[in-house]
Design a binder for these strands. Structure first.
Lengths: 218, 218
DNA sequence: CCATGACAAATGTGATCACAAATGCAGATG
DNA sequence: CATCTGCATTTGTGATCACATTTGTCATGG
């Protein structure tokens, strides 16, 4: 049938595959997709108004980062992590995040701490409102805001792939334990930052990271 | 015009894009490509006897892992790392590799240590033969053989992406300093393993990792 | 000798198609 | 009622093409 092609604005926007990638990446990282959720090339393409080719590139990229899982037949789904894998990813977070925080410590001036406090307030509201996606989003933003000051782009990049892998699982975990009160760790982190106490900061991050994920054990 | 397609063996081999990916990944990791080396879709396709589509998927995957760099216009090259970036990647290695080694320690029985010793001999021969690619290959195999025992696939996966990012740079570094004698760190690692000394093992790995990459400073 | 501009070649992007394999489901069978 | 078989549908894979943009080259002008 070969219909005449629809002409796109032709402005030099971001490539289609990149738009698809970013959209899906956010869905995964913020836990807006359930573990085991299947994604098809044609389905993604239709959702984003593109053909299979950009959709394929986006999925390939995301699976390379561990955000998605590839079955033997080439099917793509969000990962269903085993308890061992969740534990391991938590340990990786516990290894990297205190290091990033420590590096950010000396560069963390007051404006940064204030901004983190604001994000933490939004986080507390999300908890009270029982909004898992917003909770995950603000929680990650809280951490990322701090780590950006570490000036360690490679390490932060690696850490974000870990967050990505945990995205769908976080969603089910945080909806499962229906927490109604904010965990105290973020306050400890802020206090350590204000005090300039490296050891306390590292400890606060380690407990924040491991505590949040170790509550799933069933 | 739609010419009749050439029929491929149709055996259920690995997909073409995966073969291309594996081939290129090895080239990058073992330092067989110079930093800044440009890779084109049609060129890769011709080399591996496939069309642009699988070549594109392989390149997308490798750039997602940091093995390749994407220019603003979409061109793909091997990364040319700044000194800061090299330093940061070395610090990441120094953070992860002692951890992996420590986890492998209690599972490291004699057969493993013997195998590592054999790999280390091959490594020494590669140094004497002035063969940078074989040196890098055996060096990484030495480390990976140990870390596989850590039973931490996620952490090992992350570490391999770090190795990937360093691949092309390692090549130029190791050819630059034309070492003729093996560094002593691998022997220290083996001794610590035999002694079951965790602290010594961690220290040996940290120095092996940082020492090898800190010699570039010019 | 270096900068500049025009033109040709090279290159990434996205759409479409053919095809084989996998999947899902209905109906038959035990 | 559970299991298997057969078929229609879905799905990933790879090739090919058109197109816009970028890159490289070479001649011209300062």
């Amino acid at each position: 049938m070969a219909v005449a092609l629809i002409r796109m604005p032709s402005q030099s926007e971001a490539p289609a595959h990149d738009r698809v990638y970013r959209g899906l990446r956010q869905l995964v990282m913020h836990g807006e997709l359930m573990p085991g959720q299947a994604l098809t090339l044609r389905g993604i393409g239709k959702q984003y108004g593109v053909s299979m080719t950009p959709a394929r590139e986006a999925l390939r990229r995301l699976t390379a980062e561990g955000a998605l899982t590839l079955s033997a037949s080439g099917r793509v789904t969000t990962p269903e992590l085993s308890n061992d894998r969740i534990e391991e990813l938590a340990q990786i977070r516990a290894l990297m995040e205190p290091e990033l925080a420590s590096r950010a410590l000396r560069r963390a001036h007051l404006a940064l701490i204030d901004r983190m406090e604001a994000i933490n307030d939004a986080n507390a509201r999300a908890i009270h409102r029982q909004d898992p996606v917003e909770y995950i989003r603000t929680n990650l933003e809280f951490h990322r805001t701090l780590y950006l000051r570490a000036q360690s782009p490679a390490m932060l990049g690696l850490l974000e792939t870990v967050w990505l892998q945990l995205g769908p699982t976080m969603r089910t975990l945080y909806t499962r334990l229906r927490r109604t009160t904010a965990p105290p760790h973020h306050r400890l982190i802020l206090e350590a930052l204000r005090a300039g106490d490296d050891a306390a900061l590292r400890l606060a991050l380690r407990t924040d990271v491991t505590q949040g994920l170790r509550h799933l054990q069933g």
